[in-house]
Computed example of a mutant assay.
Amino acid sequence: MFATSSLTGSKPEQYAQLLDQARGLVHGESDRIANAANLSALIYHAVPHLNWAGFYLFDGTELVVGPFQGLPACVRIPLHKGVCGAAATERVTQRIDDVDAFPGHIACDSASRSELVVPLVKDGALIGVLDLDSPLLARFDADDQAGLEAIAAVFVDALR
């Protein structure tokens, strides 16, 4: 399940505990860079089998890499490209079991095999995306999606 030994129980219970930790990290802080940095580290070190966890922030034109954990990443992603672009454009979480089967996938890290991207939207405006990559095929399931969507909501709710 999770790499952090303090998390116990079923996968949904562990995500609930991780969500509590995420709330604690952003409590009283509205800076998106600070919160994205802390949440990236929290997710990367708690959720197993990730090779990248981080944020792409929307600059009004395209997605620009923000705080993350993992190898260096693509700096800019057009909204019409890749899994991140699809999540941002459609404003729907993208859970991709095999990135090689996704039309237009952008291979920032050739080791990535599956991906989960959650759009970040506040008051109808696109803020960016939360992006997680794994070297395992079909790494992410419905529990991962629900848990990470909840953490993404904590990030969005902290913005002013």
Rank of each mutant, 00 (worst) to 15 (best):
R113D: 00
I96N: 00
V121N: 02
D144F: 06
D31F: 05
L136D: 15
G54D: 11
A111T: 15
V92D: 05
R23A: 06
N35Q: 10
C84P: 09
W52H: 03
A37M: 09
E115Y: 04
G147H: 00
A107V: 12
D133P: 02
P48K: 12
V156F: 05
I151E: 01
S134P: 05
L25S: 07
A34R: 15
L39F: 10
H80M: 06
R139D: 05
S30L: 07
K122P: 03
D59A: 08
I127F: 01
A111H: 15
Q94R: 15
G54W: 10
A36V: 10
G104F: 03
V64G: 03
D20E: 15
D31N: 15
A37C: 06
A53Y: 11
D97T: 09
V83H: 00
V156N: 04
E90V: 08
E29T: 15
L136A: 13
H105N: 13
N51K: 04
V121H: 01
C84N: 09
D31S: 13
D59K: 10
A22H: 04
N51Q: 07
P135E: 12
C108F: 13
A152T: 08
F55Q: 03
T89E: 05
A41T: 15
V26Q: 02
K81S: 10
S40N: 11
H45K: 12
T93F: 10
D133W: 02
Q94N: 09
